[in-house]
Design a protein around this nucleic acid. Structure first.
Length: 482
RNA sequence: GUCCCCGUCGUCUAGCCUGGCCUAGGACAUCGCCCUUUCACGGCGGUAACACGGGUUCAAAUCCCGUCGGGGACGCCA
């Protein structure tokens, strides 16, 4: 039975790299009718936050993929200690009584190869037992084979055969001096206990995997199949981080900006994986059908967002925007309308589903993000048009007098004609001819009068949705500005 | 510092394993044209890449070596 797991640690929001890891795991499981396990890796009590748990679930729920089983690592400590003890009893681990932080080599100062604390690895078991019994605190370290020329190896489904000399692996910790398991131990212990068959995760774990293989084997378990994913990096090639790159790395930012979850998933899939047949716009089902570990590449992928970020339009990767627009265009009017409505409501436009449904076809080809509805369709919903420059009313190669003439005649025509596409089309074209103007010269002043701007959906459909009353009032107001 | 991974258009990628079909294909972005009542959609076309240097071979983006460049891991964080 195929079983995969996604194991985020609740020390921050769900970021795009993690989201992709989750998606790949999900796709792989669904493709092979396997099981998706969600496991919160929360053994670092000091850094876990409820806000982070909330953010992760928010992001995951928005993705709407779901999972089959759910666990919290902090509730499984007995298992972790049991496995640590088993490894210790086999002589594959030893107590390290060196006080924590004795070396004071924090993250920044790591430029020397540390393998183990002298004196501790060789400590006789009797002395070790004595000191432990006396209450002295210790960390439990794995006794990595040293000086034996031994090699640790595993086959990665993406990166191929991986081999490392055991002499290059440090004696990593299994248990901290407070008795809590480290990530390496807890992760492997749970993977064993939960019968995880495939570990699909970021490439930043590739060199940790040797340690994990050692733990699996030390615990008497067969290591699962590993598949490491190329990293998602910023345009400058650096690792994505909230500090440096801001909200663009958080999944909820995409949700709030009006991405469709299926488009976001589609976009992420194309980063580091390819169906190899030039397809790009794909549904969840198509992705599931096409997904395989063979399609994953090895080089990091840059997510091409703009560093400082001005408008959402400029912030996001252009391809993500394009894909989102593609997915929006692929939605039915009903579906899109239903997704647009909450966006309008959130922005305090108290509109009805009927009105939204009428407007949706006019903007479907014109928005890239759901949020764009606010700027693309606002004039349909406001009582009073925001102020605009009256000069906008003046048509191409025309003047204020022409604009006035168009609006005056337009008002007369629109007071009579039936507010449907074809009659509007005929009546306004006839009026243009009558005034000796080009159609565009006729339409533009009316468009600006009713929309408050030059760029808008096609005129006749717009008028039809707006209705006669609003149209005439707005033309009236435009005339008074000239 | 030690160990590991990676390197095709600006970006995402196909091709690499199983050398010749590659005068390197697609997509986004960009530029131009067409469609057109504005915008958008759509259609057509252009610019643009095998990191570099050596081999091997009749033939290399594809195989080998080296250089350079980028990234990752090295914590009683995950």
């Amino acid at each position: 039975m195929l079983r995969v797991r996604f194991a985020p640690s609740p020390t921050g929001f769900l970021h795009v790299g993690s989201a992709r890891t989750f998606i790949f795991n999900w796709l792989y499981a669904r493709h092979n009718r396997g099981t998706v396990v969600l496991r919160l890796d929360d053994t670092d009590v000091d850094r876990n936050t409820d806000a982070s748990v909330t953010s992760i679930f928010d992001g995951l729920r928005w993705l709407d993929l779901g999972w089959d089983e759910e666990y919290k690592q902090s509730e499984r400590l007995a298992l972790h200690r049991q496995i640590a003890d088993a490894i210790f009893q086999k002589g594959l681990a030893y107590r390290d009584f060196t006080p924590a932080h004795a070396g004071e080599t924090e993250k920044s100062g790591v430029n020397q190869t540390w393998l183990f604390n002298p004196g501790m690895r060789e400590l006789p078991r009797t002395e070790s037992d004595l000191r432990a019994a006396a209450g002295e605190s210790f960390a439990l370290r794995f006794r990595v084979p040293r000086g034996t020329g031994e090699q640790v190896r595993f086959a990665d489904a993406v990166y191929g055969e991986q081999i490392k000399s055991a002499d290059d692996i440090e004696d990593f910790a299994l248990l901290r001096s407070d008795g809590m398991p480290t990530y390496h131990l807890a992760s492997c212990a749970d993977d064993i206990d939960l019968h995880i068959s495939h570990i699909i995760r970021g490439q930043d774990h590739l060199s940790n995997t040797y340690k994990h293989v050692l733990i699996f084997e030390g615990a008497g378990a067969k290591p699962p199949q590993f598949a490491h994913l190329p990293l998602l990096v910023a345009p400058d090639g650096s690792k994505l981080s909230k500090r440096r790159h801001g909200p663009v790395v958080s999944v909820t930012t995409y949700r709030d900006a009006g991405f469709l979850p299926e488009a976001f998933i589609n976009f992420l899939c194309l980063l580091g994986w390819s169906p190899k047949d030039d397809r790009e716009n794909m549904t969840r089902q198509e992705l599931t059908d096409a997904f395989s570990l063979e399609g994953i590449h090895r080089a990091n992928a840059v997510i091409n967002f703009k560093e400082p970020a001005a408008t959402p339009e400029e912030t996001f990767d252009p391809k993500a925007l394009w894909l989102n627009a593609e997915h929006i265009r692929g939605l039915s009017i009903e579906d899109l309308s239903a997704r647009l409505l909450p966006v309008m409501h959130a922005a305090a436009f108290p509109i009805t589903p009927e009105k939204m449904h009428a407007v949706t076809p006019l903007i479907r080809e014109r928005i890239k993000l759901l949020r764009d509805v606010l700027s693309a369709a606002d004039f349909f919903f406001v009582d009073q048009l925001p102020p605009y420059d009256p000069a906008e009313l003046i048509p191409q190669k025309g003047d204020a007098a022409m604009a006035l003439k168009v609006l005056t005649r337009g008002r007369e025509v629109l007071a009579q004609v039936e507010f449907k596409h074809d009659p509007l089309d005929q009546a306004l074209r006839a009026a243009a001819q009558e005034l000796g103007l080009k159609a565009g010269q006729m339409f533009q002043p009316i468009r600006v009068a009713v929309c408050g701007r030059k760029t808008a959906p096609p005129l006749f459909e717009t008028l039809q949705v707006l209705g006669r009353e609003t149209t005439l009032v707005r033309i009236e107001q435009a005339v008074s500005k000239l």
